[in-house]
């Protein structure tokens, strides 16, 4: 079957067998390998992408279920002009070690910040419940999300300059 998605602001289609998960479609058919396969059953969050503004496990969703919808992956965050504040802060603070969990953690955090611009540490912890990291212990990630949130709230944020309109925060639900 043919599945058509708006991925990172651009329309893309692929012909996939019906049992293809969104994760497999992104990684193997659209070659967007940013989202990772960690457990393939919804436990680890390495596959997190944003579908219509909500963070979901791409391994637990059929590509067909995402047909016609808007998908943002880690590849869609940075622009020619700059890194997303989360990427910038995560880089500077060393919030990631091996990095395998990183795309998922950043996408979950982005979805959180889109809805909750000023999250408390507890809200960040709750949001990241479904993102397992075996290396870091989460402390720098939680601080990093707070730092990125502060950066995004300040209007002169240089890292925000290049935010493409297609990726602007979705309407508050």
């Amino acid at each position: 079957m043919i599945v058509t998605l708006t991925v990172n602001g651009e329309l893309r289609s692929a012909s996939v067998p019906p049992e293809t998960t969104l994760l497999v479609m992104l990684r193997e058919h659209l070659h967007l390998t940013g989202a990772k396969t960690g457990c393939d059953v919804g436990d680890c969050g390495a596959c997190t992408v944003i579908v219509d503004g909500l963070a979901v496990n791409a391994c637990l969703m059929l590509a067909a279920q995402a047909d016609g919808r808007t998908v943002t992956t880690i590849e869609g965050l940075a622009t020619r002009e700059g890194l997303h504040p989360l990427q910038k802060v995560f880089e500077e603070t060393g919030a990631l070690q091996c990095g395998f969990c990183g795309p998922g953690v950043i996408m979950t955090s982005k979805a959180l910040l889109d809805h909750t611009p000023e999250p408390t540490p507890q809200e960040i912890r709750t949001a990241l419940t479904g993102n397992l990291c075996r290396c870091t212990g989460y402390v720098k990630m939680i601080e990093g999300v707070q730092e990125a949130a502060a950066m995004m709230r300040s209007p002169q944020s240089p890292a925000l300059a290049g935010q493409s309109p297609a990726l602007a925060a979705p309407e508050q639900k």
Partner: peptide, 8 residues
């Protein structure tokens, strides 16, 4: 579960 599971 977690946020991602609750969203689906």
């Amino acid at each position: 579960g977690a946020v991602q599971t609750r969203n689906l």
